[in-house]
């Protein structure tokens, strides 16, 4: 079966600085793929180059067999995206943000159900500007799920959420995965990565330093805990 996401030879430079170097990724249908690395490792740049919101210096990208730059409209009917920072119009309400997103797609799920699932139902008529950081974060994840996507990009999906809310999000995403949803996510929380990801790719200074399943990577290392494994792989563990 063709991969859902196929990236070959992706290279991105900002001036002299190389942000991403020769990146190759293939993500299969139904897979949860984690893109890991420290701040500035190139995760967000990679996602934006894949989505086509940033230009790239070299490489090819195919999502669901489509070119995100040339077949944007077709592709984004089937793909949901949550950016790291979500901003909304001034003085807009939660319900209105959802209504707009819902109207953009030919087929979309009932956003009220999503609001209930994420414990946001009673905030429907609140101003987005009055939400807490965690609530805003949940709202941005909801935006990515409204199109009933085959593939979602989640950039730091649970940053700012409390433990309970994080677990709720994980549970919901796992349920969607069982139905065949493919997910590409970035995260700084290794418990989250372990709970969700089938496979991870670790970036350091824009280069891939490891790409495998969590079990395989753990076996390579002298550690049991994935956080320790991650730090060991990135060469940042405490001596």
């Amino acid at each position: 079966m063709n991969p859902v996401v196929k990236v070959e030879g992706l290279r991105k430079r900002y001036g002299d600085k190389t942000a991403v170097e020769d990146l190759n990724i293939e993500i299969a249908k139904g897979e949860i793929f984690g893109l890991l690395g420290h701040n500035g490792a190139g995760k967000t740049t990679t996602i934006e180059c894949i989505l086509g919101t940033k230009s790239m210096n070299a490489g090819t990208v195919e999502i669901l067999g489509l070119d995100p730059r040339k077949q944007r409209k077709q592709l984004f009917e089937r793909v949901g995206v949550q950016f790291q920072q979500s901003n909304y119009q001034d003085k807009i309400k939660v319900k209105e943000v959802c209504e707009i997103t819902h109207s953009l797609y030919k087929k979309a799920v009932d956003f009220r159900e999503l609001l209930v699932t994420f414990g946001m139902a009673e905030l429907e008529n609140s101003m987005v500007s009055e939400l807490s950081g965690g609530e805003r974060q949940k709202l941005s994840v909801i935006q990515a799920l409204i199109p009933d996507p085959e593939l979602v990009f989640l950039d730091e999906l649970t940053t700012g959420l409390d433990s309970k809310a994080r677990r709720e999000v994980w549970k919901y995403l796992s349920k969607l995965k069982e139905k065949g949803l493919t997910i590409l996510l970035t995260s700084h929380y290794m418990d989250e990565v372990k709970a969700l990801c089938d496979r991870v790719c670790i970036l350091k200074n824009g280069k891939v330093i490891a790409m495998d399943t969590i079990e395989a990577l753990t076996k390579q290392s002298p550690y049991e805990d994935f956080e320790e494994v991650y730090l060991w792989l990135t060469g940042e563990e405490d001596e």
Partner: peptide, 18 residues
């Protein structure tokens, strides 16, 4: 200018709408 500043246009870029 405000929509661009808030990156709202960018968010619309990853949806089917022009």
């Amino acid at each position: 200018a405000d929509y661009r500043h808030r990156k709202i246009l960018k968010r619309f870029k990853v949806t089917p709408v022009s």
